[in-house]
Amino acid sequence: MNRRSALFLCAFAALLGLAPPARAEDGLDAIMARKVIRIAVPTDYPPYGFVGPDLKPQGLDIAMAELIAEKMGVKAELVSVTSANRIPYLQTGKVDLIISTLGKNAEREKVLDFSYAYAPFFQAVFGGKSVAVKGPADMAGKTVAVTRGAMEDQELEKVTPPGVVVKRYEDNAATASAYVAGQTQLVAISAAAAGTIMQMNPATNTEFKFLIKDSPCFVGIAKGDERLRAKVNAIILAAKADGTLNAMSQKWLGRPVGELPQ
């Protein structure tokens, strides 16, 4: 094919709409253009995210989402998600960020990027005092509730011995309810959520059994969106330096923010 023929075919393809698409604006450009940042948040996971008496979302993750929007000078559009759908929401462009007690691991790093950590978090197995469990091996022959797709689900799978009946539920509220109702003997859940169970349902005599994962919270960002990631990191670093992150942790978790990884 000569040069003239090649140019003709390129022009013909353009007329048919077959030309390569123009470079899409990155996440930060899109957010600033619409003046709205869409953030995936939990609404069933106190004290990180839940619906208050005024029917509005509140909690540590909600406060973090609002802080990022404020510092960027845009409006926060909060999108309620579950552990199972939060990453797909980011991958399909339904949200710009995930701020939903998101832990970092190698599998997740293949499909999304992470900010610096902004809050402490850990998962563990809890159960009634009468249930003799001190480690993974002791779970054999017992039932345990866990939220499908959550970090504790992934970590529990790594240590679960044969003979354990794992019952998976679609969100944290359903997981906690199943355990409280006696459908399982144990529950794999965050320490914060377990604290709520202990407070609201003292008759369960729930106590800490063993640690699954110490997993601080990170903001999830679309893979390769470096400008947005840098902006979020700058906001987190400033909030850490001026005491905002510590104040948020004290308010919602009752503990200092501590050392957080970058």
Rank of each mutant, 00 (worst) to 15 (best):
D61Y: 01
I62A: 13
I62E: 04
M64Q: 15
M64C: 10
A65C: 15
A65K: 15
A65I: 11
A65M: 09
E66N: 15
L67Y: 01
A69L: 04
A69P: 00
A69S: 10
E70N: 14
E70W: 07
K71N: 02
M72H: 04
M72Q: 02
M72Y: 13
V74D: 06
K75S: 15
A76E: 08
A76L: 06
A76W: 06
L78H: 08
V79G: 12
V81C: 13
V81K: 05
T82C: 09
S83K: 05
A84I: 01
N85I: 12
N85G: 03
I87P: 05
I87R: 13
P88T: 08
Y89I: 09
L90K: 11
Q91I: 09
Q91W: 00
T92M: 12
G93Y: 07
K94N: 12
V95C: 14
V95P: 05
D96G: 13
D96I: 11
D96H: 11
I98K: 03
I99R: 03
I99P: 12
T101Y: 09
T101A: 11
L102H: 14
L102D: 00
G103A: 13
K104E: 15
K104F: 09
K104H: 13
N105A: 15
N105W: 01
E107G: 03
E107F: 12
R108Q: 12
R108G: 12
E109V: 03
E109Y: 02
E109Q: 11
K110H: 12
V111K: 09
V111Q: 12
V111Y: 08
V111T: 13
L112A: 01
D113S: 09
D113V: 06
F114Y: 14
F114A: 12
S115A: 10
Y116F: 13
A117E: 11
Y118R: 15
P120N: 07
F122Q: 02
F122D: 10
Q123I: 06
Q123K: 05
Q123S: 13
A124K: 01
V125Q: 00
G127C: 01
K129E: 04
K129G: 07
S130M: 00
V131Q: 09
V131D: 01
A132H: 14
A132R: 03
A132L: 10
A132S: 10
V133G: 06
V133Q: 04
K134P: 00
K134E: 10
K134R: 08
P136K: 08
P136F: 01
D138E: 08
M139A: 02
G141E: 06
K142P: 00
K142E: 00
T143D: 02
V144T: 03
T147H: 09
G149W: 05
G149K: 02
G149E: 14
M151R: 03
M151S: 10
E152S: 10
D153L: 05
Q154D: 10
E155M: 04
E155I: 03
L156W: 04
L156P: 14
L156I: 11
E157A: 14
E157Y: 01
K158I: 10
V159D: 07
T160P: 00
T160D: 07
